[in-house]
Design a protein around this nucleic acid. Structure first.
Length: 798
DNA sequence: GTAGGGTTAG
């Protein structure tokens, strides 16, 4: 008997040793495990607890959890070690529910600290910070002793949910009391909690970072993690000076620390700093890894440093044998982004096509690239090819449609997403809301606003910013102001949207006030801010202010004005009739003037009847964009105003020869959640006859108040009576008359037109607003006009 | 049988 026991013991220790060997070389292949296992069975050895536990653990780690579970289920009363193995295995494979089931069925009298630790880690790793804390509290309640592992794990969980300083302080006290306050791993975790909590909106980041720094400075023994946690903490919280200060104090600088700092500079848009560090690394012969490359390429992409980025790409090709294979996704994805941001979308696509396997980031980046450069048809068909879509995929495509003026497509896709039971994220909502802005569909926009709140995205920045734009572009400026004023936190996009909203409605003075307010609150204006403020000044005729801001842009904020900024400045000058200054500015520009500049000049010339300069601008535009209808129309309008009908027909003829078609004018109005569209001389709308009749009555009353139809706006040569009739069939007049007939008494009339409002209609609506005693709001291609009591908000400056 | 830091798309 003694001999048998001895031989079983020998076998057990033999297998235990073999399995231990496997564990050291983990993960063990399932084949090896099965061979050892088969050997046990064949030799008649029935493994008991610790050998079996080790076997199950190895099966789990070789991703064979299901088979391990079969073995587990055959054990009559599995011990706590076996249970802990499964708690860990299930939670690291993402199945927290199964882990919890094993934990909950573990009798209290066999539980120990380790199994609680495993459960706490499992919750934290599956981003359930609160459950981690609950299990921690439970173990304290049952008097289990918390150890270093417990604290590091529960602190990790806490770092997911900590929002207030008190969360950090409470655990700090707990740790000091427990006596683990000097244990490196525990203090590291505590620093990490402070760092992550510092990004919460409810705390003062600098205070928490100062507390983290004290912990770091006062810890007796720092390890690699202590350094990288504090450095990356500063990076996360936008304090790169402190990050680099601590970094400089490191004796042996770790690759992770280099990477954290480089990525910090990259995210802050400080590409030159990021590249400077990478050059230093290179001279110290520190090998770059995947993370380094990704951040450097990101820096080149955001700064559009194409040549530098291309050099890095070349270096990767030379030094890494199989970039596509060795750096599975991230580096290749960063390369895609580099080529895209530098305007080489087709090269980006080539990289994508050459990747042997791609992840969602690869697909989404290419999709964003197509959307970004307005290649919307390619984006659409690429979108359809994407095998698995996430919320980003949908939101990029939805807002892509909206940004490219395809509001209807945007809304359709948003609805399709929901019909597939995909819960829209805040960015998708933003895309759908901007679609409503494009379509000027206020009813629909309001519905989405309500759904947004129901879905819990009320505090989302991107969604709220889209609401500012939507309400403004639907004509209800007050609502966009109240969204802006009630936002908990705002960013530069919010300010830009608000300034643009005021500008479009002709409130240049208020736009300037908001801009000044923005500066007072230390928000740094960007390129877009200056575009919107220049437009706002232009719409309101604030020439001096506009010029002041244009100068401020590069003098104070170091933003080099682009062609678009020059375009707005020229627009500002020309509208005010300052052609000498405008031409002077065009000659002084640091680059060849392009489309925005010539269009601004032509537009100004049309307002002031400056035919000579207008012809020059138009000729340039004919060269640059020969198929754009607007140039021909503006020029022919100018000739028509001067009665030069020969020139008018010459231009019309040019259009015919070149195959340029005029975009037909159309206006629309929303009544009872339905959009009603009217074309010039409309015959299609079912109620149009009634509209014509009503319009006739109105014009009769308007004439009594002094309205004289201004036939110079009829751009065809015909008899005067015919001209007057032609004016009365303009789409915007039909839409307004329809609104007056169908909308409730006193309701504001909001009409939208694809092109600019006609001069006679502009005059007519002033009289009309007086006759009917209601406010009429028109959004044309450029801006808003509010007609009230015989006056327009634009002060005739448009 | 249990732990903690760095990457890419809006």
């Amino acid at each position: 008997m003694a001999a048998v026991t001895k031989s079983i013991q020998a076998a057990a220790s033999f297998y235990a040793a073999q399995l231990l060997q496997c564990a050291k070389q983990a993960p063990t292949s399932s084949t090896t495990l099965r061979m050892i296992h088969a050997h046990m069975i064949a030799s008649g050895f029935t493994p008991r607890s610790h050998v079996l536990n080790r076997l199950m653990d190895l099966y789990c780690k070789s991703t064979n959890i299901a088979y391990a579970r079969q073995l587990f289920d055959e054990i009559p009363q599995p011990d706590v070690v076996a249970r802990t193995t499964f708690i860990t295995a299930y939670s690291s494979s993402g199945d927290l529910k199964l882990a919890k089931e094993i934990f909950d069925t573990t009798p209290l009298d066999i539980r120990d600290t380790v199994c609680y630790n495993a459960m706490i880690t499992g919750c934290a790793h599956n981003s359930d910070g609160n459950a981690a804390i609950e299990h921690f509290c439970e173990m304290k309640r049952y008097d289990f002793c918390a150890d270093n592992f417990t604290y590091t794990s529960v602190l990790f969980g806490l770092s997911l949910v900590a929002e207030y300083e008190s969360d950090c302080q409470q655990f700090h006290c707990e740790i000091v009391k427990s006596g683990t306050g000097f244990v490196t791993s525990v203090v590291n975790a505590l620093i990490s909690v402070h760092v992550k909590c510092a990004s919460s909106p409810f705390v003062t980041p600098s205070l928490l970072m100062a507390a983290a720094r004290r912990l770091f400075d006062e810890m007796p023994l720092k390890d690699e993690l202590s350094w990288t946690t504090i450095i990356s903490g500063y990076v996360r919280n936008d304090d790169l000076n402190s990050a680099s200060q601590v970094f400089d104090g490191m004796n042996e600088k770790l690759l992770v620390a280099w990477n954290a700092l480089i990525s910090g500079y990259m995210h802050k848009g400080l590409a030159s700093k990021a590249l400077e560090l990478s050059r230093k690394m290179h001279s110290l012969e520190i090998r770059f890894d995947e993370f380094t490359y990704t951040s450097i390429l990101g820096a080149c992409a955001s700064a559009k440093l194409f040549l530098h980025g291309k050099q890095v790409h070349g270096y990767i090709i030379r030094t890494v044998k199989h970039p596509a294979r060795d750096f599975l996704f991230s580096v290749n994805n960063a390369l895609i982004a580099l080529y895209w941001k530098c305007g080489k979308v087709d090269d980006a696509r080539t990289i994508f096509d050459r990747m042997p396997i791609r992840d969602l980031v690869s697909w989404n980046t290419i999709l964003s690239a197509y959307v970004d450069v307005g290649r919307i048809d390619e984006a659409r068909s690429f979108f359809n090819e994407i095998p698995e879509k996430n919320e980003l995929t949908w939101s990029v495509m939805i807002s892509g449609f909206a940004q490219n003026g395809l509001g209807e497509e945007g809304l359709k896709l948003f609805n399709q997403m929901r019909s597939y039971n995909h819960q829209p994220c805040d960015y998708s909502f933003a895309g759908a809301i901007i679609s409503c802005a494009v379509l000027a569909s206020l009813d629909h926009g309001r519905q989405l606003h309500a759904q947004l709140i129901q879905s819990g995205f009320e505090s989302s920045l991107s969604a709220s910013n889209s609401l500012i734009t939507m309400y403004a572009r639907c004509g209800v400026l007050q609502d966009s102001q109240s969204v802006f004023l009630t936002m908990k936190s705002v960013d530069s996009v919010s300010w830009n949207s608000m300034i643009a909203a005021l500008g479009q409605h002709g409130h240049g003075g208020q736009a300037v006030d908001v801009f000044d307010q923005m500066l007072k609150e230390d928000i740094v204006p960007d390129r877009i801010t200056f575009l919107t403020i220049l437009s706002s000044c232009s719409h309101a005729g604030l020439v001096d202010q506009g010029q002041h801001y244009f100068n401020l842009m590069h003098e104070l904020y170091n933003i080099t004005p682009g062609e678009d900024h020059y375009g707005r400045l020229i627009d500002l000058l020309c509208r005010a009739g300052k052609f000498t200054e405008a031409v002077d500015m065009i000659q002084k520009m640091p680059f060849n003037p392009g489309v925005p500049v010539w269009e601004a000049l032509l537009g100004g010339c049309r307002i002031h009847g400056n035919i000579e300069l207008g012809i020059k601008a138009a000729e340039k535009l004919f060269e640059l964009i020969p198929h754009h209808d607007g140039t021909y129309i503006l020029l022919s309008n100018m000739y028509a105003n001067l009665g030069k009908w020969n020139d008018v027909s010459r231009i019309r003829n040019m259009m015919r020869v070149r195959g340029v078609k005029k975009e037909p004018a159309c206006s629309w109005i929303e009544v009872d959640n339905m959009v009603n569209v009217f074309l010039v001389d409309d015959t299609k709308h079912p109620e149009v006859q009634m509209v014509y009749k009503y319009l006739e009555e109105l014009v009769f009353k308007m004439k009594k108040l002094g309205y004289v139809p201004d036939t110079k706006y009829v751009l065809h040569d015909m008899e005067n009576e015919q001209k007057e009739y032609a004016l009365s069939t303009h789409s915007e007049k039909l839409a307004v008359a329809f609104g007056l007939l169908r909308l409730p008494c006193g309701a504001m009339i909001r009409v939208f037109k694809n092109l600019r409002i006609c001069g006679d209609c502009h005059n007519a609506f002033k009289f009309m607003s007086q006759v009917v005693g209601r406010e009429i709001v028109i959004r044309d291609g450029k801006r808003f006009h509010h007609f009230r009591n015989g006056k327009c908000s634009c002060g005739n400056y448009w």
